[in-house]
């Protein structure tokens, strides 16, 4: 009995694996059988941030928090304010809670020569150090170039949080797993823009598809010298910055 049970269960297991695998493959490649035309192999996403346009209103931070149920006191995208006092002295503040509450003027007489806002978020690096260190395969790269965290797989060891050079990951306070920006994966796979891009009133944030020959972001990336954060680490960030100053780190 037991043996037979084992065999049937085993066979059943194998069958379910086969079925579910092909089902997922169909769903992901969008062959039409699942009614979904989205094919993850047809996209290669990139994100563009124009620092010169940013007014620091933090609509993006708000939208991100609401769209993705980001817990209090944590942010998936945030805004930093740089105040360059003289050519060797810079104040950086990320006015409370990643800029979520907006920015207030600095105290009088701080004497900034130059100041600007820098929105930051997960860079979705092509060679992401966070993915490299994950011991259980919970951090991974989709074929579109999005770095995701599998909350059911993550054991909450926090190694990826240490590994990220940009400080983009955090440990979810209630679920106790790593959490980070997904480029609103649930939105972009439906053809929508990420919530932060939608919310930005100044067109600071742009989202594009490098596999689309007519994409405006692709055009900018090809024709304009853009910067990335920490290029020396060769993580190949997919968040590109326009008008970045030397002070930005």
């Amino acid at each position: 009995m037991i043996r037979r049970d084992f065999v049937t269960k085993g066979l059943g297991g194998v069958l379910t694996i086969l079925i579910s695998r092909s089902g997922i493959a169909q769903a992901l490649t969008g062959d039409g059988k699942t009614g979904d035309t989205y094919d993850w192999e047809q996209h290669d996403y990139a994100y563009l941030i124009d620092i010169a346009k940013c007014i620091g209103c933090a609509m993006c931070v708000r939208a991100c928090k609401r769209e993705n149920n980001v817990p209090d006191n944590f942010v998936r995208t945030w805004i930093e304010r740089y105040h360059v006092l003289d050519f060797n002295n810079t104040i950086v503040d990320s006015s409370p809670n990643g800029g979520l509450e907006g920015f207030k003027p600095l105290a009088e007489g701080s004497g900034a020569n130059k100041a600007f806002f820098v929105p930051k978020m997960c860079n979705h690096c092509n060679k992401s150090p966070c993915e490299q260190v994950c011991p259980v395969g919970a951090a991974y790269h989709t074929k579109e170039g999005v770095v995701l965290v599998d909350p059911k797989r993550c054991i909450g060891c926090g190694y990826c949080i240490q590994a990220c050079p940009f400080g983009c990951r955090f440990l979810h306070p209630t679920e106790h797993v790593a959490s980070k920006c997904t480029w609103c994966y649930h939105r972009i796979t439906k053809g929508l823009k990420p919530a932060c891009v939608l919310a930005c009133p100044r067109g600071v944030r742009q989202f594009g598809d490098l596999k689309d020959p007519n994409d405006p972001v692709r055009k900018i990336l090809l024709e304009t010298p853009v910067s990335v954060l920490r290029p020396d680490l060769l993580t190949e960030p997919q968040c590109f910055y326009l008008h970045m100053d030397k002070e930005v780190r």
């Binding site: 010169a52 360059v84 060797n88 020569n113 020396d232 008008h243 100053d245």
Partner: peptide, 17 residues
């Protein structure tokens, strides 16, 4: 320039200023 333009210096991380 320092006060109004976007400035870049080479090999910033080496702190050679």
């Amino acid at each position: 320039i320092l006060e109004h333009k976007r400035v870049l210096i080479l090999k910033n991380d080496l702190a050679t200023r």
